[in-house]
Design a protein around this nucleic acid. Structure first.
Lengths: 211, 211
DNA sequence: CGGATTTAATTAACGTTGTTCAAAGAATCT
DNA sequence: AGATTCTTTGAACAACGTTAATTAAATCCG
């Protein structure tokens, strides 16, 4: 025959390199710095190379998004694995969500950009997002099962997700005028979502060493 | 002397025309269709004309954003002017917020875009946004004054604003997987924010013909 | 009325960008 | 070695934001 095709792993490796270069550019110099030419230049390759591995620029950003969601999911699953009392877990999970966003604002902006291709077109990204939400839902379900929260977990976890996300979105867009510390709004938000008295009691009673 | 400068009103008129052309393009063909050349072409002018009236493209979008916030504020103020009981007003205001977003998704996306210049650089836009939030805060304050809600109005109105916004943001980005109707989440969200029992009671007792 | 002058608007151009396509390079089999 | 097939490249295109040089328009003064 002829020259053998790249192994699937090899092709994935190149794709990973492309994503890494794009991520580095994005994190260091912002969205506008992520150009196809710059990505290729960072890899010491020609400007046309990325097009052999991604259909277009948008697909590269979709891949980046999925990677970010995977990272977020990992931290959320770690919280769930600690096995704290449900309300403590929810509280901690919400804070780790906020910590993630504040530590990686550029990534968060990317993940939840308002201008995005319809998720249905990118099942991989959709799955990554669902994994994060499922983790929250599991924690919420445990709280419901123990009678600490009423309502169904699917709806409730969506409400929590949306409320936290709204806070972070406004914060990152500089549209929060109340003070400088986001915490001033996080605490009341969590109180509203989970109830202040129950939270305090759960935290006092539920602290464990590790898990 | 020589050719007289354009009147301030005349210049504002041209600026308004530019914004109108940009808005029409944005609404009809999306963000990518809003190019300086297309704006000028829609006005039957040369491609360099917008630069005499706006520093750059970003400033045009800032102006559009401010116009959208003014429209939102108008509808919110109308709700406040009805003079319903505070909890009814808050409830109605939240729904009008959602109605606005669902009726003008493109505008909403524009208003709350994650990638935006720092608000401090555009006091006019900042003021327009503050006006909307102040309206909500006023309604919230009335509820606090009547003992229907605890906590301070500034914090509380921010929490409500953020929660509603989070819901809409995820909805518009297609990241809400629960059912098709946004209402399935709006109702639980409002219940969480304002309390279901008090809400129902207030609505039953407070309905008025017009205000 | 007619040149001088000052502002407005246009034409033309520059540097970049995303993307495509034909040509060149590399790796295998016969 | 030569043919063949995949990979990579170099060059090109159209479109964009933006700026500079040029032309058109409207006033004032004589």
């Amino acid at each position: 025959m002829a020259r053998p095709r790249l192994t699937a792993e090899a092709a994935d490796g190149v794709r990973a390199d492309i994503c890494a270069a794009a991520a580095r550019l994005y994190e260091r110099d912002g969205y506008d710095a992520v150009t196809m030419r710059a990505i290729a230049a960072a890899m010491d390759r020609s400007q046309a190379l990325p097009y052999r591995y991604f259909k277009n620029k948008e697909h590269i950003f979709v891949a980046l998004r999925a990677m970010c969601f995977d990272r977020l999911t990992t931290t959320m699953e770690a919280v769930l694995a600690r096995g704290d009392p449900p309300l403590v877990t929810l509280h901690t999970m919400a804070h780790s969500f906020i910590t993630f966003a504040e530590a990686n604002p550029a990534e968060y902006r990317l993940m939840f950009a308002l201008r995005q291709p319809p998720p249905a077109e990118y099942p991989e990204l959709h799955a990554a997002r669902q994994r994060a939400l499922a983790t929250l839902q599991t924690a919420y379900q445990q709280a419901v099962d123990q009678g600490l929260i009423s309502g169904d977990a699917l709806t409730g976890s969506h409400v929590v997700w949306a409320a936290m996300h709204g806070l972070l979105t406004l914060h990152l867009a500089g549209q929060l005028t109340i003070g400088r510390r986001l915490d001033e709004l996080v605490a009341p938000m969590l109180d509203t979502l989970f109830g202040p008295r129950r939270m305090a009691a759960a935290k006092a009673a539920g602290r464990r060493p590790q898990g």
